[in-house]
Design a protein around this nucleic acid. Sequence first.
DNA 1: AGGCGCCTAAATGCATGCCATTTCGCCAAT
DNA 2: ATTGGCGAAATGGCATGCATTTAGGCGCCT
Lengths: 246, 246
Amino acid sequence: MSQRTAQRGRRLDLSEAGIVEDTSLAGDVARRLEEDILQGTIRPGQRLDERELSERYGVSRTPVREALQRLSASGLASARGRQGLQVAQFSVADLLDALSVVASLEALAASQAARRITQEQRAVLEAAHAACGAAIAEGDYDAFYTANIGFHDAIASASHNRVLQDELRRLSVKTAPYRRAITFQPGRMPQSQPEHAAVLAAILRNDAAAAGERMAHHVSLLSEGIADFLHFVRSSEHAGLFKDEA
Amino acid sequence: MSQRTAQRGRRLDLSEAGIVEDTSLAGDVARRLEEDILQGTIRPGQRLDERELSERYGVSRTPVREALQRLSASGLASARGRQGLQVAQFSVADLLDALSVVASLEALAASQAARRITQEQRAVLEAAHAACGAAIAEGDYDAFYTANIGFHDAIASASHNRVLQDELRRLSVKTAPYRRAITFQPGRMPQSQPEHAAVLAAILRNDAAAAGERMAHHVSLLSEGIADFLHFVRSSEHAGLFKDEA
DNA sequence: AGGCGCCTAAATGCATGCCATTTCGCCAAT
DNA sequence: ATTGGCGAAATGGCATGCATTTAGGCGCCT
């Protein structure tokens, strides 16, 4: 004898469905801000003014504030005391540390993906790899940037580890401005393809240990790219990307 | 609508202290909620009612809402559409996945701590280890739970990796209710001491590889404890800790 | 008698307004 | 001329009120 009456036909029981999409304005604003950070429209260190954002998005300050709270909690924005928030800005040391965390998690993702990937996801992963190759062949940096994200996302999905996906997404957005800059380093783009291929092959043959190892290696090379990249920072449009302090 | 001219080239020549104390009510509420989750006062699956919380903490709904947004963004609370939020609740599979992520990150922390630990932090780490031992000797589960957190926190601090510390803190809070339950499993508490000792020794002799390996092993054993723990879930006060299944 | 639909109460989502604090420009004093 | 302080403007922080949506109960129709 259930105390709860049967669900009405015209209503869907969302509470049991698990993930419900967020239709709130705060969620929209948060997603737009994340997207703008990912795409480089908003740069690290930039100040986030509540009133300005509320006017730009045509909403009141309340949902904007709530969105900023989310970004702050995710580490995408940092508080400046009573003076509002700004987009998180890494020092060089912080960035290297962040990439070490990313490497560790990406390796775990690749390792678990090697054990858990489904048949359909194999196809998706191969397609993402092919898209990377196509972008390289055409020398299209923007396309490669997007395709590369797709490749890593496909691996994260194949890991079937929701917690891991959440963490990786968070860190990806945080490090996106910097990874983007590295992508545009000459030579970096074609270099990544054989690394991707090695990871892909290991996953497809369900070799978890090798997949993790190859992925860790791949992301580590990203860190090495930082050293090269640093030589361009001061004199280029990338100035201001880093926090002054070391 | 005022035209804002300063879009770029913002200088931050003021104090880049980095860590600014958050004195806002929203921050206070968020910290209190986190603490309550850590200490088990609030349990997974429990609903978070805005008005109730605002009355309990003596503030209006606005800072409560902002605190809840933070928890949601951190993954500590999950949205239920328009039905408010509830404390994040793992399925068994999710918990195991989360622990694999924790293991990976704790291993990285131990590894980096072995290379970066300072003289003072060596003392802190040894003291934390001693505190664990004392709690075990007295059979004090609560003291051990706290001391164990102190030990892991000390390692995270010694890693000098802020990003890693943030991620670990987030995941620690999320998994705290479950780790706490495992702590109370008979035999688990004394078992952890030699594992801690091995990690400690590796760090103190600056053996990064061994430190990471030992720590990964240590946290992996935690996962194995889950299997034992599961046998008690349904018939004990731990019922309801897990999501039905997903 | 049982199921379907409306209705009401309550909780969330959002907007607005006021207050506290910080900032920056201006004036005066040294 | 430089510096210190004072004040106005701006900006973030919080409270409150209203709109919207949902859950649950009661009555009506079949």
